[in-house]
Design a protein around this nucleic acid. Structure first.
Length: 300
DNA sequence: TTTTCGATCGCTCTGACAGG
DNA sequence: CCTGTCAGAGCGATCGAAAA
């Protein structure tokens, strides 16, 4: 390979990696898979005549999107037979912030909240691609169409279907994550002191709790609906842990740019919790317990 | 008995079109 | 530019028959 080509690939990598990782992570919901896809695309870039590509950013997004669609296609069976509710893997901020690599902090500018990410798992892969490329990356329908080998009209249609699937209210929040600190503080206080009332007030009447154990650890297979049931479930867990003399330690943690809760049992991570707010109250609670997806958190 | 093939069915996707 | 409708295309699931 020519020297200049290598330099150009490196420059593209430096410039676009955060954006491309963010796109892949939104599509796949798994950090390591997203990293693999980005590496994969850049390793193929060496064989491409770069001078013939007018819009390199769009080209790279196209490669990433299609690679992600391939990955999702082959993982489809796996996710269909998944035990319980599939939740994405969290992106721990503490690990990535303030590191020696200034590029990492750029990832956070493209950060999407855990709640939004979980919400978008309801969409099929193509709908997710169209929606993110449009809403989060501001590509026009013509560009999206050429990326996905579809017509612009079809992309518009897919986009409107995707929007209908998820509540409009939620999609508007894509760029402005709400502050979950108060909910987290109230939850931690409730767990410690047993004073549940302040936390209950911050939980919407029709809130839903989704939990993901991946079939490996105990978790609620079906979503738990309504405030009363969620409170009973969560503080039932806390009580059970006390009865079993587990010393569960709960602390706030930054997950995908928002505050959540990390629950540890000694050195082992028991789970993490994230909240999605609606008008200041938690409308969704996510309890991730799948050890596979907690691995990245235990690295620190 | 297991595997492969083909027919059928029903669901989802696509894209044209119309109206707001 | 967005949304809804609709007909046709495409695709996966299922099942029975035939072959290994």
């Amino acid at each position: 390979m020519e020297r200049s080509q290598l330099d150009e690939v490196r420059a593209l990598y430096r410039e676009h990696r955060p954006l491309l990782f963010s796109l892949a992570y939104r599509m796949l919901g798994i950090v390591s898979d997203a990293e693999d896809v980005v590496q994969d695309v850049f390793s193929h870039l060496n064989d491409v005549n770069l001078s013939s590509i007018a819009n390199k950013k769009a080209y790279l997004c196209k490669m990433i999107t299609n690679r992600c669609l391939d990955v999702l296609k082959s993982a489809r069976k796996k996710r269909e037979t998944y035990v319980g509710h599939w939740l994405p893997e969290p992106l721990p901020c503490d690990l990535r912030e303030g590191g020696e690599d200034p590029q990492q902090s750029m990832v956070h500018r493209e950060m999407v909240s855990y709640a939004v990410l979980a919400l978008f798992q309801q969409l099929n892969p193509v709908e997710r691609a169209v929606f993110f490329l449009r809403e989060a990356f501001a590509f026009d329908y013509g560009e999206i169409a050429s990326m996905l080998n579809k017509t612009a009209a079809n992309c518009r249609k897919i986009h409107s279907r995707a929007k209908a699937k998820i509540a409009m209210e939620q999609s508007r929040r894509l760029h402005e994550p709400e502050n979950t600190d108060a909910v987290v503080t109230a939850f931690l206080k409730a767990a410690r002191s047993g004073e549940v009332e302040p936390f209950a007030r911050l939980l919407a009447e029709d809130a839903v709790l989704y939990s993901d154990g991946g079939g490996r650890v105990p978790a609620a297979i079906r979503p738990i609906e309504t405030r009363e049931r969620i409170l009973r479930f969560l503080f039932g867990l806390v009580r059970k842990a006390e009865e079993m003399a587990l010393s569960l330690e709960m602390r706030p943690i930054r997950i995908n740019g928002e505050t959540g809760v990390i629950i540890r049992n000694q050195e082992e991570i028991f789970g993490i919790m994230a909240f999605q707010l609606r008008g200041g109250r938690a409308a969704s609670v996510f309890l991730l317990r799948n050890p596979e997806k907690l691995k990245p958190l235990s690295r620190n």
